[in-house]
Design a protein around this nucleic acid. Structure first.
Lengths: 332, 332
DNA sequence: CTGAAAGCGCTTACAG
DNA sequence: CTGAAAGCGCTTACAG
């Protein structure tokens, strides 16, 4: 029916209606001391009646600060992001900062574009929850505003603070758990070539060798799950599998059950991430949990410090923990 | 090391460096005709060298348009949103609009706050992917900018366009499927008291009665799943269950298996939403799929029309479809 | 405690 | 094809 035709009331309309100058309205609305209580109350009432909303564009332009931070995520569907964002927003809410989210839809190119758009919008800082962006892109962003990354870059760009989990410790915990259950032929399904995946893989190999066992690594892409399952039950086949993330681990679980293999009787399975799906499947998934909300909170702390003028670039590594459920059991 | 100390170059810096007036720079950057190719090229080169970025705040303030739309979601972790957002962004990308996402974290109050923040930021329109917001809040937003809602409100606010799926048809398809498999004692686990849930429940009851069967409805909250499973196997106990959404359906599945019940031998289960988890669990979940990406695209189409001055408020209902998997089978 | 003035970085008619 | 000027809605010293 109606379009938002009527132009939005401005500070001038409020000033006129309240019979004061526009600077006074500005002060009153921002809660500045030095405006009498009576006047402030009256001005706020008038503003409310008129349906006045402060124009954030004009405010940001005049102040050079928007009190907004941008959150860049590469993939909304991945629940990992939801938890990190939760941690970030808890801190942001408590410190009076607004958050807007930009979404890369799984593409580094789209993500970089969103990053630019959000910087153009004048946010006071940015948290990139993704390891997708290359160093150059991150560094160019960091030249404009403070940038914190949650995740694990290959080489931390000079001007970007990083919050990540200790992938080596997480992988070690997963593999040690399997070894302590008596498994000796353990395969690793590597998730990707990114830094976190590489660290988990390296740690898998080190932990196996330290126990005097031969590490066996399979690339998860290109039918890796099928190739793994083909060998289960063979004389020298694996009795356990450490998957690079929960998505792969749940695929192993589903496909194993579809083949009539028992989990954990024929194959023990460990994932990484503690995704929600791992709690729903049966047997429920043993996995490594990153402290996602804590990572978000730390990232926001670092960003606030940078926004407030701290020049220090930091790197924070948080400890993951093993969550044991039904998908792992004693070796046959 | 370095802070983003150096103030960002403006159109004036570019003008000076290129030896032209600042209005000319503005025209050249926006690709206005009426600037010679040679001049435009030179100006763009200079802008690039200087690392110039157009200030979206200033641009938006001057033009009254930001070419940005706001997307409000109540819960990032729910994959339903990711697909709707995907559809929206496909259209937005193709039509040159940017998108920023505001996140309600499961709270109507937080969501309403984000909605305000994003409107203050001067977006050209808003898509609310949630049925959480009350009519008053939506209507107040619609008084400021065009608003489209994806989901099902109880009473569509006068000024808000709506895109939703046909819950009645979806529920009917689910129940008819069970009836055609020979089930006669079918229970419905109602998910909430919201409009979509109510529509599914009503349709369940109508479909059952039309088939001469007695509808049995259980509130999913408050241990509803346990109360349902307690009765499975009893002489007059249910042999099938239509859950109001996939989250509930997968809980039924997990809990049934934990109790040693067979699915679908002892109990057939149907969900609603086609969430990813339903594909991962075993048996995989039979469910009703909403055309989520299409709903997003339609919402964006409606919003663009409104932004371009169309005053028509529309309501679009898309058809869901049944996805049959392993969790449903013939009645014993 | 209050008001007039300049400025944030851009766009947009309007003259040349 | 190019330049000077006003204005978008706010904030911020600066005088009173």
């Amino acid at each position: 029916m109606t379009t938002p035709a009527r132009p939005a009331p401005t500070i001038i309309d409020v000033a006129r209606a309240a019979g004061v100058s526009k600077s006074l309205v500005s002060l009153a609305i921002r809660g500045d001391a030095g405006v009498s209580d009576a006047t402030r109350t009256r001005i706020l009432e008038v503003a409310d009646e008129l349906g006045y909303h402060s124009n954030a564009l004009a405010r940001g332009l005049a102040r050079g600060r928007t009190q907004m931070v941008g959150l860049l995520v590469s993939d909304l569907a991945n629940p990992y992001f939801a938890d990190v964002v939760h941690g970030i927003e808890e801190d942001a809410d408590a410190t009076g900062l607004g958050t807007i989210i930009g979404h890369g839809r799984g593409s580094a190119e789209v993500l970089a574009r969103r990053l630019d758009e959000i910087l153009d919008l004048g946010v006071d800082g940015v948290i990139v929850i993704s390891a997708m962006l290359d160093g150059g892109t991150l560094d160019r962003a960091a030249a404009r505003r403070p940038v914190v990354m949650v995740g694990r870059p290959f080489a931390p760009p000079r001007r970007v603070s990083v919050v990540r989990n200790h992938d080596e410790h997480g992988a070690e915990a997963a593999v040690s758990h399997l070894i302590s259950l008596g498994h000796r032929r353990i395969a690793h399904l590597a998730s990707s070539r990114r830094a976190a995946a590489t660290a988990r893989r390296d740690s898998f190999e080190r932990t196996m060798r330290a126990a005097g066992l031969a590490p066996h690594v399979i690339d998860a892409g290109d039918d890796g799950v099928a190739r793994l399952l083909d060998r289960v039950g063979a004389p020298d086949g694996p009795t356990a599998c450490f998957a690079g993330n929960d998505r792969i681990a749940t695929a192993v679980l589903s496909d194993a059950l579809d083949r009539g293999l028992g989990v954990p009787t024929d194959l023990s399975v460990v994932g990484y991430d503690n995704a929600e799906a791992g709690r729903l499947v049966r047997p429920a998934l043993t996995t490594v949990e990153q402290p996602r909300e804590a990572m978000g909170r730390e990232a926001m702390r670092l960003l606030r410090a940078r926004i407030d003028g701290d020049r220090e670039v930091a790197e924070i590594t948080l400890e993951p923990r093993l969550v044991v459920r039904g998908s792992t059991g004693p070796a046959a």
